[in-house]
Structures are given as C-alpha cells and as structure tokens.
Amino acid sequence: MKNRLRELRAGRAWSQADLADQLGVSRQTVNAIETEKYDPSLPLAFKIGALFQLHIEEIFTAPGDLSV
C-alpha cells in the first residue's frame, strides 16, 4: 500500500518519534509504514487520518486498481 505519511509528517516538521508518540506506536512502526514495508491496521490508519485531519484514502492508496 502506497502512502504519503513521510510527506505529511515532514509538512508538520515532526520526527518519526514525535509521530510515533502521538499515535501510541513505536518509531519502528512509523518507519515501516513510511517505507511501505508494513500496512497499518484499520484502527491505526483511522488514527493517522484523524491526526492529519484527512480521509484514509487521501493518505493511503492501493498499488493497483482495486475498484469493483
């Protein structure tokens, strides 16, 4: 899953540790999401959306066309 987390975090001048603290996860988790090695759970994705005041689909995009 592609995402804009790094870009959004940079926009707020937060470190990975700052973001991790606000989300209640480890810095490694933030890093793994940013490098697209790990897709967050739906609750965490919603939390990220709420923090940046964006819809999930404005942050995360599926790699292929998943329309039905």
Binding site: G24, V25, S26, Q28, T29, A32, Y38, P40, S41, L44
Partner: peptide, 8 residues
C-alpha cells in the same frame, strides 16, 4: 505489551 507491528 508491544504495538501492532511487533505483534505482527
């Protein structure tokens, strides 16, 4: 005790 990535 760990977060979701570690549990994964």
């Amino acid at each position: 005790r760990f977060d979701e990535l570690y549990r994964h």
